[in-house]
């Protein structure tokens, strides 16, 4: 009984457009006329610097689209570069309004933030190794030394479940250097980044030795229980999907066209049909 009264009371408050203080990002964003977005600036194709030094990318375009949907054609998008280790802190401390920075949906993260609609299905980690490497399955990596990146969400799985000897660095260039130095037999990292690496002349002798063991949906990160804002963001994402915008951006940023995005575009178009 008490819950239903509370629910009704909340709905009335929401209907009136007055939500609990601090949790109504939608009103705040509308008041300041700017959507502050946490994006990657070192992660092609999702967010990276072009040769003019501007941050561009798949998720940057999505962010600007969402900003226009929420705030009208005059709406501004302020881009704040974030990294994996600080993006959730930035969101929850109010420095950004939304995360659009290769944020994979995981149960652990779900405890501290909410997710929008899942707009991309991103491959998890794969392993880059010299072409001579004989391993091709995750089970074959037991006891082998792999380079990695500190703080990656899959590190615990690698060391505890698969028995990998992980040598984790702070940044990618260090891990690449260590791989070339044979400090490890392979480097485990985000599949899309590694695949781009194997196309570089300097890395011609390397291959993707082990394919990703999972695909993770990618979503926008939103503060917990920020319902009005999340609904508005979801509406904007679905509209972008229905208009085929995400497929357009795949083309713009040289990404392979994924079935996931195509399917979602169809579903969104069907949903929005009058």
């Amino acid at each position: 009984m008490r819950t239903s009264i509370l629910t009704i009371a909340t709905s009335i408050v929401v209907a009136l457009g007055i939500t609990a203080a601090g949790a109504d990002t939608l009103a705040d964003v509308k008041a300041k006329g700017t959507l502050t977005i946490g994006v990657k600036n070192d992660y092609p194709p999702y967010g990276f610097l072009n040769n003019k030094g501007e941050i561009v990318g798949f998720e940057v375009d999505l962010g600007k689209y969402v900003a226009r949907e929420l705030l009208g054609p005059e709406g501004k998008a302020e881009l704040v570069p974030v990294v994996a280790a600080n993006r959730i802190e930035f969101l929850n401390s109010g420095r950004i309004d939304i995360i659009l920075a290769t944020l994979g949906v995981t149960a652990e993260r779900g405890k501290v933030i909410d997710f929008s609609e899942y707009y991309v299905s991103a491959p998890g980690p794969s392993v880059i190794a010299p072409k001579a490497a004989t391993f091709s399955k995750w089970e074959e990596l037991k006891g082998l030394t792999l380079c990695g990146i500190q703080g990656s969400y899959y590190n615990k799985h690698l060391t505890e479940d698969l028995g990998v000897q992980l040598t984790a660095f702070k940044t990618q260039p260090e891990a690449y250097r260590a791989l070339k130095d044979n400090r490890c037999v392979g480097f485990v990292f985000d599949d899309m980044t590694l695949r781009k690496k194997t196309e570089e002349a300097e890395w011609a002798d390397y291959k993707i030795a082990v394919d990703p063991y999972e695909y993770i949906p990618q979503a926008a990160g939103i503060r917990k229980d920020d319902t009005a804002f999340r609904d508005a963001v979801n509406k904007a994402i679905t509209k972008a999907e229905a208009e085929g915008k995400l497929i357009e951006w795949e083309t713009t940023y040289g990404m392979p066209h994924s079935n996931y995005i195509a399917e979602r575009a169809k579903a969104a178009a069907a949903k929005l049909k009058p």
């Binding site: 994996a84 280790a85 993260r109 615990k156 040598t167 984790a168």
Partner: peptide
């Protein structure tokens, strides 16, 4: 920890990245 010696800070960083209990 910067050169991957698995000492206290190395593991601490991994733990708060996993749990967000910075």
């Amino acid at each position: 920890s910067v050169i991957t010696v698995p000492e206290l800070m190395y593991y601490a960083g991994q733990i708060y990245n996993d749990t967000f209990r910075t």
